[in-house]
Simulated assay, not measured.
Amino acid sequence: MSFYEDLAAALDAEGIESRVNDDTLFVPISSGVEIQFDVTNELLPAANIYIAAAPESCAGEMIPDADEEEFEAVLVSAVFSVDAAVDAVLDHMATDAIVDLVDELVTDPDGRFGDLQFTAIEGEPITVRSLAAENSELDIVIDIVDGEPTATVTLTAFDPDLEALLDDQLNGVDGPVDDEVIEELIGCFLDEGLILPEQTMGLGTYTDFSRLLTVMPFIAEHVAEWEEDLTNTADDYDALFGDIGDDGDMVEDDLEAFDLDGNDGDGSLPR
Rank of each mutant, 00 (worst) to 15 (best):
G172C: 06
E183T: 13
L240E: 12
L170V: 02
Y237S: 07
L194M: 10
E184N: 06
T207D: 04
T207I: 01
L213G: 04
Q199K: 15
L170I: 04
F189I: 02
L165H: 01
L190K: 15
V173E: 15
A220S: 15
L190T: 13
A234R: 13
D229C: 00
L196G: 07
T233P: 00
V223H: 05
D243A: 05
V173C: 14
Y206S: 06
F189A: 05
A224I: 04
E180H: 07
E225H: 13
G202E: 12
L166E: 01
R211Y: 07
L212G: 12
V173M: 15
T214F: 15
D243H: 10
D174H: 08
A239W: 11
E227W: 04
I186H: 00
C188A: 10
A224Q: 14
C188K: 05
D235S: 14
D208Y: 06
T233C: 05
G175V: 07
G187P: 03
D178S: 10
I244D: 02
T207S: 07
E180S: 09
D238M: 01
L230R: 04
A239M: 12
D167P: 01
P197A: 08
D243N: 08
L240K: 04
P217V: 03
G193S: 01
V177P: 07
G175N: 12
M201E: 11
L196Y: 07
T233M: 09
Q199H: 10
G242V: 02
T207C: 02
I219R: 09
V215H: 11
T214K: 15
L240Q: 12
T205S: 12
F209V: 13
I244R: 11
I195S: 06
L194K: 01
Q169H: 07
L190N: 14
F218H: 10
D243S: 09
L162F: 05
L213N: 03
C188N: 13
E192A: 06
V177E: 13
D179V: 11
D161E: 11
A239F: 10
P176V: 03
G175W: 03
H222P: 05
S210V: 04
L240V: 06
I182V: 15
A220F: 09
E198Y: 03
L213S: 03
A234F: 02
A220M: 14
D174N: 12
L213Q: 04
G172I: 07
E221F: 06
V223S: 06
T200A: 10
I186A: 01
E221N: 13
F241R: 12
G204T: 13
E225M: 10
F241W: 09
A220Y: 12
M216T: 02
D243V: 03
E180K: 11
S210T: 12
A224H: 11
L166T: 01
E192N: 11
F218W: 12
V223G: 03
A239L: 11
V215Y: 07
E184F: 00
P160K: 11
F241H: 12
E163L: 06
I244C: 04
D174T: 08
T207F: 00
L162N: 09
L170Q: 07
L194A: 03
E228M: 06
E163P: 00
L165R: 01
T207W: 01
D191A: 14
A224G: 14
D243P: 10
D191K: 09
L240S: 10
F189D: 00
E227G: 10
F218I: 08
L194H: 01
M216G: 04
